[in-house]
């Protein structure tokens, strides 16, 4: 009786009908005339009595608890304004950073809370140095991390690259095979909505490492 049932997910666009049953409303859906419709382009799902749509596009909106990678765009007396790849800014107080930062510095931090107009108050900041910074569609970040961090662990283990992922779509990579890890992440971004991705990514990384190992890094 405890069989795990497969939950059907299907691609929807705004205005598509999700269900006409009585359900609780999850994110990205709305009700009209007793029916539930999608607000966005995404994957619709009705699971455990909740109808929701997992969006495939959209900018990052700060949420409490999110790890984010920001860039210092203003240095103020009490702290720093960070660009979060979002229409909303993040603010990191001085005491949340163990060293002094300057314009253009890349900082990983956590969203402590969000004010009435969505600006984020940040905490536990750390400056990231060296390495490479890339930006992907923030809606694809969960796929890069994977269930229980499975995809992220796979990427790090296979390539040996340290990867820090911000919920806001910014990813910081450090290590020898950064190029391979980068390509793998962009591949995940393109194919995030498909199945069998884990196997394809494993294969991709193995092939790329092999190719680059043979040729030279130039």
């Amino acid at each position: 009786m405890n069989e795990k049932t497969e939950v059907k997910r299907w691609l929807v666009v705004p205005g598509d009908l999700i269900t006409d049953q009585k359900v609780k409303l999850g994110p990205n859906v709305y009700v009209e005339g007793g029916k539930v419709y999608s607000k966005v382009v995404g994957l619709a799902e009705v699971k455990d009595g909740v109808a929701r749509v997992i969006p495939l596009e959209g900018r990052y909106i700060p949420k409490e608890g999110d790890p984010v990678i920001g860039i210092v765009v203003d240095v103020k007396i009490p702290g720093y304004d960070l660009d979060l790849n979002s229409p909303y800014l993040g603010f990191l107080p001085n005491e949340e950073l163990s060293e002094e930062a300057t314009y253009g510095d890349v900082i990983i931090a956590t969203v402590k809370n969000v004010d009435a107009v969505r600006n984020a108050l940040l905490e536990k900041g750390n400056i990231l140095r060296g390495g490479e910074l890339i930006t992907i569609n923030p809606k694809k970040v969960p796929r890069v991390i994977g269930k229980k961090r499975s995809m992220l662990n796979l990427l790090q283990n296979l390539t040996g690259v340290t990867i820090l992922v911000g919920a806001n779509g910014r990813i910081w990579l450090y290590g020898k095979n950064v190029d391979v890890a980068k390509e793998a992440i962009f591949k995940i971004e393109q194919e995030a909505h498909t199945s069998g991705l884990t196997d394809r990514i494993t294969k991709f990384i193995e092939e790329e490492l092999h190719e680059r190992g043979e040729g030279n890094q130039a």
């Binding site: 860039i71 765009v73 660009d83 253009g104 490479e132 910074l133 190029d179 130039a218």
Partner: peptide
């Protein structure tokens, strides 16, 4: 648009340029 947003990547590009490479390895 804030120039500082490009700074990190610009820095990386300059470091690679010192070694004679481009960021996309072209």
């Amino acid at each position: 648009m804030n120039e500082f947003i490009w700074e990190f990547t610009a820095d990386r590009i300059r470091k690679l340029a010192m070694k004679g490479f481009r960021i996309d390895r072209r």
